[in-house]
Nucleic acid binder design. Structure first.
Lengths: 342, 342
DNA sequence: TTGAAAGCGTTACCAG
DNA sequence: CTGGTAACGCTTTCAA
């Protein structure tokens, strides 16, 4: 009942284990005849190769470690979809870990992954990651690593992401061109890159159109549903009400949406909502939201492809890939604006 | 620049590799003094354990292989969330693979996972899986396996899922009690268990209420968005229109939803939609849908916990866990029905 | 309390 | 074309 190994096959055929090993891998220096015999016995005995042994020998695992903050976040689940697509095409497998936005768990996960000797690492850092030394270890051990979506600058690793500031600016420009001037921002937190960038883009757009910035219309709440909910409530209580809410991500948008319904306002008749989101997800809320589409599947794929390239040959310098975002206009917001403008 | 290994630490301290190995693992037969020294040198040298070597020796990998049809399906992404939660609590990691509903890919994935010597397998089989022999291999190799959500009966493996038929019946009962009799079903395909079960529950409910079954109101289309779209269109063209659409899952529901909008009908004023779905996801569509909540996170967790128990000690017989579903009523459907009934 | 020897299953490197 | 030997890094066993 023990597992069959190569030496079992060898014994049956009265040849050496080496011959079996080579035959199984189609080495050119084994006769076709022998190969056939070996393979036949292997399948009859139910031989299954042992990759842990092979990995130890070859110092490769055909395995990529992936670290995301939260796998039930639809952005990441789509990104992982892209990652797995690209990985399986190249014969790699995925060890998936989640940090739950916790830097310590993230540290442990990366540590375990490099102990497993993954061939490469794909990381979207948690919001609170500040300790850098794990990445030093990664560098010292010469393990290829690519950041995706959320990255840490200046460590010398490649990254794949979008230009948050420019995208935010484009989104707000669109809203303004629809005829609105009163735009409030449910912002993330300023400790996080995307929070700062998506606010900066908002400010850019207002400035470009000579619209006064109203600080009471910038609510720094956070990135999840609850933050969006509370953020809108704060806005609502204080007044005056804007015409459009710009949410930093779809977590915040969903919270705002819930709050808006609770206070009895209607979307889009009473108030519009636009948000950073991604197509696959936003089509559920569509047409209530105008979105900036940061295609997560594409981000995942690109990150994986870049990583695989770096596994093949170490690049001289880190690369930084900025993917294009796409503005997906909201028909109802648009219609309303036409009515108003007309 | 080579990786540090235990023997490097041993050389520095002039002790044997065995001592280092034991010290690192806190074996009781090493003096505290020695342990301290070893660990200090280890961290100074930047030692990282090599699990591939350890796994080869111990014949364990602390790793679970997971096979799902599609990771961007929100049901599975939430299930994986639950799986990872339970796994990391027990010190296990996850190798994630996707079959894309393709039996051949599924076969390869399972094969690779057992070659990797995962300690256990969690599988939601693809729709088209018919070839059973891979599971024979799994059984012969004595690898614990638990099916979740979608399972194959009679193979002797444990499974975790819900009672589709009873849940469907409860859902339709609710709709009927809301005052509707004209209920159409966008069904999946009859080749798949859940397709059959969710249809059977629908029939049960109609029979219980002595409502005539209209075959033209049962559209066997499929489980994805496109199927739902085409299914509704077929219904719409043929007429007569029902009052409520019961969709087999939220893929179909989303397609139907899109089609309904395109033909200019309004939900819920012109037509109601109810569907099998899950809470985490359906809140996006809520309150437009009445749903049966099959909690994917819980399914994932339970499956993992069951698997871990079976890894610890092989059970005499396979267990079958049926999780409860919860009816989440739709306020707008309810309101409308009250108007009608009153 | 420490260490020598053996082994986990596979592959690389040479000899035959 | 085939095969002996060593090695991959770690752990287990047992002797010192």
């Amino acid at each position: 009942m023990r597992n069959i190994k190569q030496s079992d096959i060898a014994r049956v055929l009265n040849v050496s284990r080496v011959t079996v090993s080579k035959a199984l891998r189609d080495c050119p220096d084994i006769s076709p005849d022998m190969k056939k015999k070996v393979k036949k016995v292997a399948s009859k005995l139910g031989y299954v190769p042992n990759y842990t042994a092979r990995n130890l020998q070859s110092q490769k695992t055909q395995t990529i470690g992936v670290v995301v903050p939260d796998i039930s976040n639809s952005f990441f689940s789509y990104a992982i979809h892209g990652i797995m697509d690209a990985a399986s095409k190249a014969g790699y497998h995925i060890v998936l870990t989640a940090s739950r936005e916790n830097a310590d768990i993230e540290y442990d996960n990366i540590m375990t992954l490099i102990s497993m000797r993954v061939d490469g690492l794909l990381v979207a850092v948690s919001k609170e990651t500040e300790d850098i030394k794990i990445f030093d270890t990664v560098r010292k051990m010469n393990i290829p690593l690519v950041f995706f979506d959320r990255s840490i600058e200046g460590l010398g690793f490649s990254s794949v992401g979008i230009d948050d500031r420019r995208s935010a600016c484009r989104l707000i420009n669109h809203v303004i061109e629809c005829g609105y001037q009163k735009i409030a921002h449910l912002a993330g937190t300023m400790t996080v890159g995307i929070g700062r960038e998506r606010l900066a883009g908002y400010k850019d757009a207002l400035r470009d159109h000579h619209i006064r910035l109203r600080n009471e219309w910038i609510i720094e709440s956070g990135f999840d549903k609850q933050s969006g909910y509370q953020g809108f409530m704060q806005l609502y209580r204080k007044g005056p009400m804007p015409e459009v809410i710009y949410a930093v991500n779809d977590g915040a948008a969903r919270g705002a949406y819930k709050a808006i319904q609770e206070v009895g306002l209607r979307i889009p008749d009473d108030i519009g909502v636009v948000a950073f989101s991604h197509h696959e997800f936003a089509e559920l809320l569509y047409p209530r939201l105008t979105i900036i589409d940061a295609p997560p599947v594409l981000i995942g794929q690109s990150a994986m492809e870049l990583l695989l390239a770096e596994i093949k040959e170490k690049p001289a310098r880190a690369r930084k890939i900025i993917l294009n975002t796409e503005l997906v206009p909201n028909s109802s917001l648009l219609n309303r604006s036409l009515v108003q403008v007309g």
